[in-house]
Amino acid sequence: MRDVGPIVDARGIHAHYGLSHVLHGVDLIVHPGEAIGLMGRNGMGKTTLLRSVLGLLPPRRGSVHVRGVDMTRAAPHRIARAGIAYVPEGRGIFPNLTVRENLIMAARPGVGGRNEWTYDRVLATFPRLMERLGHGGQQLSGGEQQMLTIGRALMTNPDLLILDEATEGLAPLIAQEIWRIIGQICATGVAAILVDKNLAAVTRVTDRNIILVKGRVVFEGTSAELRANPAIGLQHLGV
């Protein structure tokens, strides 16, 4: 896997919402098995960058290659089927489907037919969901909803898992449990892009980190570098 090149290779991404120019030439490269932290204050363009990569907001300029194939303007489902799973901000569970159906509807083997994440394994990873299988999506607590979206993403057997603000609005203990599980998932060799406010928690899991300010990359470096230079976090993230 290591020598097949990056899973995602996005270069010079410019994204717009109508007239407002949000991303100004951002690069994002993710290699197999790598965990990347994507950080920045609110409104700096993190979600927009992810949506550009996922085909949900095709970039005005720049290119997105997935496993070496040009997917700059590909439909989102093709990009997903190339092995990328997305846990969006605000979760995006299907409230009109039960917990079980939310998981089943996403199930598919990964690229190359891998089937490591079965229904049973996902439930074993999130035992809390087991008691909720017949419930509708909106009957779940915030933490359970987040577990469901992560579990659902895993059902697609992704090579890259993208988590946008996975612990946003969760009680500290629940957030801790989510971080523990994210750590477990990354340890299985799935690559990840993590967007989160909690610098310490992110850098504990990630190899490399990117900080966005107003749609531009202002820092890119290892977690060790970030920890060694608290000034960087202070300047760009305010923590």
Partner: peptide, 20 residues
């Protein structure tokens, strides 16, 4: 399930690999 999922959240369904 796919049809219902797509009805409730088209983008999310697409991001899970469904050709909506």
């Amino acid at each position: 399930m796919t049809i219902r999922a797509g009805a409730s959240n088209r983008e999310m369904a697409q991001s899970l690999g469904i050709d909506i």
